[in-house]
């Protein structure tokens, strides 16, 4: 499915550019995008190192185990295949917390770290484990309490009430997250 979507976006883009007589745009876009990929990765290396360094401190001090023990029961129910003291739980909790607070650039390092920990417990290294899928479903449908960026955009566009969409945003993500959790639960049960 990923292969097909990737190919379709590329092919449709090139065909449309050819038909509308802007074929040279394809060259520029492709080159620019490749450069952007490097920029994003390099930037991420810095932030990633910072947070992984702190995460290591938190782990060695027993901080993460503490958080995992407090929030564990609820989170563990979502990840029944993980060991109860799995180091992945700490990274998952940190990632979701960062997402909820809208700290996007802290969320990604914790998320990638969580994937590495989940991979260690994955019996089939090239196939996604149920725990990974649950984690990604939570991660991508997760509630953000303060959608700061979009509030900034609304403020600049002279909205009478830039923050009025916080409530609607929370309700909408709440719906998406609930459906994701239940759908994941039923798929996992059926596949067992």
């Amino acid at each position: 499915m990923v292969n097909l979507i990737w190919l379709l976006m590329l092919a449709i883009g090139i065909i449309v550019a050819a038909l509308t007589g802007h074929i040279e745009n394809v060259t520029v876009s492709a080159m620019k995008a490749a450069e952007l990929g490097v920029e994003v990765a390099i930037e991420l290396i810095g932030v990633m190192s910072l947070w992984l360094g702190l995460l290591r401190l938190a782990e060695e001090a027993g901080f993460i185990r503490g958080i995992a023990r407090v929030l564990g029961p609820a989170v563990r129910r979502l990840f029944p295949t993980l060991k109860p003291d799995s180091p992945a739980l700490g990274a998952i909790i940190m990632n979701l917390s960062a997402n909820i607070l809208g700290l996007g650039n802290a969320a990604t390092p914790f998320g990638l770290k969580a994937m590495q920990e989940l991979q260690k417990e994955n019996p089939t290294p090239d196939v996604a484990s149920p725990a990974m899928i649950t984690f990604l479903a939570l991660n991508t449908s997760c509630i953000t309490i303060i959608p700061a960026t979009i509030i900034g955009v609304r403020l600049k566009a002279d909205s009478a009430n830039p923050t009025e969409i916080i409530g609607t945003t929370i309700v909408a993500t709440g719906c998406a997250m609930t459906v994701a959790i239940f759908a994941d639960y039923f798929i996992r049960r059926r596949k067992r």
Binding site: M9, I12, I14, S29, A33, A34, V38, V40
Partner: peptide, 19 residues
């Protein structure tokens, strides 16, 4: 890095072309 580049190229070509 390679995953970022792969996705960004495909997405940008799709969007910038007007598709």
């Amino acid at each position: 890095l390679p995953f970022l580049i792969g996705m960004l190229v495909s997405i940008r070509v799709f969007v910038d072309s007007g598709a």
